[in-house]
Each structure stands twice: as structure tokens, then as C-alpha cells.
Amino acid sequence: MTAVQEKPKAVAPSGPPPRRRGKRATALAGTDKLVLALMLGIPAVVHLLFVWVPTLGSIALSFSRWNGIGGLEDIEWIGVANYVEIFSEYPRFWPAVQHNLIWLLFLLVVPTTAGLLLAVLLDRELRFSRIYQSALYMPMVLSLALVGFIWQLIYTPDGGLLNSLLGLSADPVDWIGDSDINLYAVLVAAAWRHTGYIMLLYLAGLKSVDPALKEAAALDGASSAQTFFRVTFPVMKPVNIVVAVVTVIEALRAFDIVYVINKGRNGLELLSVLVTDNIIGEASRIGRGSAVAVILLTISLGVIIPYLYQVFSKENRT
């Protein structure tokens, strides 16, 4: 993941070749061309056919009114009416947007800081380091559905762990049912799982920081905090970008955990849940669901495109 980084010129093998050596480029033989085309073509077709074609389909469907039954001829095209309804009437839409934003902010602050801190602490000669890493990373491999279940055992008002530990058994806090706090309760669970992932990314990033840089800084008399903020952290910029994007996407995609907990109702509405509720189920409202999906898509692309721009424009400059 951290491969975004370009190699510093100094260590690039045999030094950067002069720019205009294009004439050395060898032409490929016919079979090689075919082989290469197949190697690129088959995956590209699979990807386009099953990811991008349906995406375009969803955009088209967002302008329709359709219950998902029958063929194309049963679809009624209604222009932007779905969007108008979503923005003006659909009672769950704005809460969902708000929850997605809170989700995003929370993930960007809490697990990122915690993950970075843990990575820094573990990135040194330390006994049991591997055991610590395993324990911290463990929640990450569990499915969100299981995470949802585990945390229900903790949050339930009737004999849940948290209320019992806090001595609130007599007058329990309804962590999941109270819509003022349940979002944060669920976010703790999500962060529990996300922190290990972030820690891992930073750990990989830190491992790749040339120790010579740190040693040099230490020789110059920098404290370890100074070394970290002045030397290590800036070098890790590509990792930071990856972490930011991973987090944004996780926040926008968040779904399983609230769906397992209460189907994303009562204070746990998220855009992904609205899409699912509208397009899966007995009486589908494909048009409205697709419109929410397109809104979600637009937000995602708003993140994806600058990210890709950042990554690939740098590549062009190399």
C-alpha cells in the first residue's frame, strides 16, 4: 500500500537514466503483443463489465421510478424527481449524511491517532513486539458482522458488560437504543477494528523510513519527538495519504456493522443503508435507491479523484 512513494533519486539503481533514451525502446514481437494484450484485456473487460457498466446502469436508473419487477419496458423515467424527493422529503436522508460525516471525522481522528501512536511505540527493538502487534491487529480480521454481534453483548441494557462494569445495572444506559449516543457506541466498535489496520499501515510506513535519517537527526541532538515530527512524519507523507483515503472510503462504505446491529435505523442511518433498504427487499424503490447510490458515488469520487491525481501526477513527474 505504501508503494505510492517514489524512490528517492539517490538510491535509484544505476541512477536516473537520461531523459531521451526512447530510441532504445525495443519493438515487441507479434505474439508478445497478443500475449500482453490478453494480459491487460481480460482483466480490463472483467472489471469494466462487472463494475463500471453496472455503475453507469445505476446512474441511469436514478432517473427512474421502478419497483425492480419486470423488464426495461416497466421502467418509468421521471427525470430528477428522485433527487428532489431525497433532498426535500426523504426523512432519513439528511440524518444519514450527517452520520456519515460524523463517522468520517471520528475515524480520521481517533483510530488514526491511536494507530499512529501504537505504530511509533512498536517500531523499535522491543520484546513481545510481535505479540502486541498480533493482539492489536486481531479485530481487523473479524467480519464486521461478528464485530457487531460482539459489541451487542457488551452494550445490551439487560446484563451487558459495559453497564455491569459501570455499575449501572439498576438503571442501565441503552447504548444501542438511545439515538443520541448509539452512533458513538457503534463508532467505538468500528474504531476498535479500524485502529489495528491503521497501525499496520503506519508500521509498514515507519519500517521503510531509512534508519540513517533518524540516526542523523539523533546525532544532531534532536529529541525523539523532534525526530519524529521533523524527520519521520514528513517522510511518511505517502502513507498518510493512503491512511486518509482508506479511512474516507471506510467511512463512506460503512454498512455491515450498523446493519447487523439494528438495520441502520433509529440514529444509525447511513447512506449505504438507505441504498440497501431501497434496492434490496420486498418492495424495492430502485430509482430512489439508485439516486442515493449516485449521491454516495459522487462523494466517493470527490475523494478518489484528487487522490488518484495526487498519486499519478507525481508518477508523471518522475
Binding site: L36, A37, L38, G41, I42, A44, V45, V46
Partner: peptide
């Protein structure tokens, strides 16, 4: 390249 890629796509 395009032509060859399309050929590849065709096979797929």
C-alpha cells in the same frame, strides 16, 4: 494497442 486489447477482450 487498442486493436490488440479488443482482440483480447473478444477472447474473454
Amino acid at each position: 494497442m487498442l486493436r490488440v486489447m479488443l482482440a483480447g477482450a473478444g477472447v474473454a
